[in-house]
Amino acid sequence: MAVELSVRLYGTLRERFPSYCHSEGQRVVLPDNATVEDLLGALGIARSDVLVVSTNGRILKADDTIRSGDGVNIFQSILGG
């Protein structure tokens, strides 16, 4: 079984996906038990941007597994304002 996700992008990440539509999110299909690392790989986004992946109000670590139906958001880190 594959994991189907609709990923919402924030910060300057949207610019990298010309067809991105925020109300629908970016569709990604991942193998079962895929991790945050796999997700970023599938999207082709490098982690050097200090990316932050969150779901259900929690920040995920690189090796956390992503489950089907999770609302996944990807941000860039900001240290304050």
């Binding site: 910060g11 969150s54 920040i59 941000f75 860039q76 900001i78 304002g81």
Partner: peptide, 9 residues
């Protein structure tokens, strides 16, 4: 740019 991540948290 902080509105999104802080709400997400």
């Amino acid at each position: 740019g902080l509105v999104a991540p802080v709400n997400a948290m």
